[in-house]
Computed example of a mutant assay.
Amino acid sequence: MSESARPAVLGQNQYGKAETRVVRITRDGAVHHLKDLSVSVALSGRMEEVHLRGSNTHVLTTDTTKNTVFAFAKQHGIASAEEFGILLARHFVSSQSAISTARIRIEEYAWERVDAPGCGTARHSFVRSGQETRTAQITFDGERLEIVAGLKGLVVLNSTGSEFHGYIKDRYTTLKETTDRVLATEVNARWRYGRTDADWDACYRGTRELLLHAFAETYSYSLQQTLYAMGSRVIGQRPEVEEIRLSLPNKHHFLVDLAPFGLKNDNEVYYVADRPYGLIEATVLREGAEPGIPVDLTNL
């Protein structure tokens, strides 16, 4: 038999659901604890029938693996990424005779509590650890010097203290009103200084802190309201800042429907949808501020 005539054979294979984003909130009275994971499940075993003949007899659907992640988050909590992964891997192998190996890959996203003067160490406000990037834009037209500073990628979350209702409803509206939701966003901000000499590091730290404090301390009825509270806090307490532009994508957290599994989801288990997303943008200016050199503050 020639080399080209040799029959094809099935090699190593696996299947599963990749990057299931699950957020588990444990509500210890007024103090909330947050676990944020991306879980990828890969299963392998006796899968020749589905590959060679299209028979799904031994196939546990990838949608089922996703649902198992959510259900386990509710039933067992998430003590650690490792322990959660062990529970899942053992479950898939022990519950399905056709599955001989389960590989669980987990990324955990770390959050820190916001330390805000108005509420001490916030009990339900968090900032994603070590994610943001500091930015600066310097413009000189031969006479005037202008400094625009900023940050991008500062991810924050309130696990309660946010409502959304009373909005326009038409024949295409499906969003349900809520009086208790997770409010999460990625803060992208640029602010223009009204002076050309300052302790820039201190200015940056102070502005960043004010943005975080306002987010944590504002009881929110809309992300627009929160945006204005953040911008006006900076204008009110940083006299060197003349205007600030904020771009806040709404990082939607939706409650998982656990009823099909006989479980009640009491604002504990969420899935994160990254697209499409609401995008809220506005500029907050100091009243009577002198206009600066024409600078694009919108390209955040």
Rank of each mutant, 00 (worst) to 15 (best):
residue 2 S to N: 08
residue 3 E to S: 10
residue 7 P to Y: 07
residue 10 L to I: 04
residue 11 G to P: 05
residue 12 Q to Y: 02
residue 12 Q to P: 06
residue 13 N to C: 02
residue 13 N to E: 05
residue 13 N to H: 12
residue 14 Q to R: 04
residue 14 Q to T: 03
residue 19 E to T: 09
residue 19 E to H: 08
residue 19 E to C: 05
residue 21 R to Y: 08
residue 22 V to Q: 01
residue 25 I to L: 09
residue 26 T to G: 04
residue 27 R to Y: 08
residue 31 V to N: 14
residue 31 V to Q: 15
residue 34 L to I: 12
residue 35 K to F: 04
residue 36 D to I: 14
residue 37 L to K: 06
residue 43 L to A: 02
residue 45 G to A: 11
residue 46 R to E: 00
residue 46 R to C: 00
residue 49 E to S: 00
residue 56 N to M: 02
residue 60 L to N: 00
residue 60 L to G: 06
residue 61 T to H: 01
residue 68 T to S: 13
residue 68 T to L: 15
residue 69 V to W: 04
residue 75 Q to L: 13
residue 76 H to E: 11
residue 77 G to P: 04
residue 78 I to S: 02
residue 80 S to W: 10
residue 80 S to H: 06
residue 86 I to L: 10
residue 86 I to K: 14
residue 87 L to M: 14
residue 94 S to Y: 08
residue 98 A to C: 10
residue 98 A to R: 04
residue 100 S to G: 15
residue 100 S to R: 13
residue 100 S to F: 09
residue 101 T to Q: 15
residue 104 I to L: 05
residue 106 I to W: 06
residue 111 W to L: 08
residue 111 W to T: 00
residue 112 E to S: 09
residue 113 R to P: 00
residue 119 C to H: 01
residue 120 G to H: 04
residue 121 T to V: 15
residue 122 A to T: 03
residue 124 H to K: 07
residue 124 H to D: 06
residue 126 F to S: 00
residue 130 G to I: 10
residue 133 T to K: 15
residue 138 I to N: 05
residue 141 D to C: 08
residue 144 R to P: 07
residue 145 L to T: 10
residue 150 G to V: 01
residue 152 K to A: 05
residue 153 G to I: 07
residue 154 L to H: 08
residue 155 V to E: 12
residue 156 V to R: 12
residue 159 S to W: 11
residue 164 F to W: 14
residue 164 F to G: 05
residue 169 K to F: 10
residue 171 R to S: 11
residue 171 R to V: 10
residue 172 Y to Q: 14
residue 174 T to W: 11
residue 175 L to R: 13
residue 176 K to W: 03
residue 177 E to C: 09
residue 182 V to E: 01
residue 183 L to P: 02
residue 185 T to A: 09
residue 185 T to D: 09
residue 185 T to F: 10
residue 187 V to I: 15
residue 191 W to P: 01
residue 192 R to Q: 13
residue 192 R to D: 01
residue 193 Y to K: 02
residue 194 G to W: 03
residue 195 R to C: 13
residue 198 A to W: 02
residue 200 W to P: 01
residue 200 W to Q: 05
residue 203 C to F: 09
residue 203 C to W: 08
residue 203 C to Q: 10
residue 203 C to Y: 05
residue 204 Y to E: 01
residue 206 G to E: 03
residue 208 R to E: 06
residue 209 E to G: 01
residue 211 L to A: 12
residue 214 A to F: 08
residue 221 Y to L: 13
residue 221 Y to H: 14
residue 221 Y to Q: 11
residue 222 S to T: 12
residue 224 Q to H: 07
residue 227 L to R: 08
residue 230 M to S: 03
residue 232 S to N: 15
residue 232 S to D: 15
residue 233 R to Q: 03
residue 234 V to E: 03
residue 240 E to K: 04
residue 240 E to V: 02
residue 242 E to H: 14
residue 242 E to Q: 15
residue 245 R to M: 13
residue 248 L to T: 01
residue 251 K to D: 06
residue 252 H to V: 15
residue 257 D to W: 07
residue 257 D to V: 09
residue 260 P to H: 12
residue 260 P to Y: 11
residue 264 K to R: 12
residue 266 D to K: 00
residue 268 E to Q: 14
residue 273 A to Y: 07
residue 273 A to C: 11
residue 274 D to N: 07
residue 277 Y to M: 13
residue 278 G to K: 09
residue 280 I to N: 03
residue 285 L to S: 15
residue 287 E to G: 02
residue 288 G to D: 02
residue 291 P to R: 13
residue 293 I to D: 11
residue 296 D to S: 11
residue 297 L to I: 09
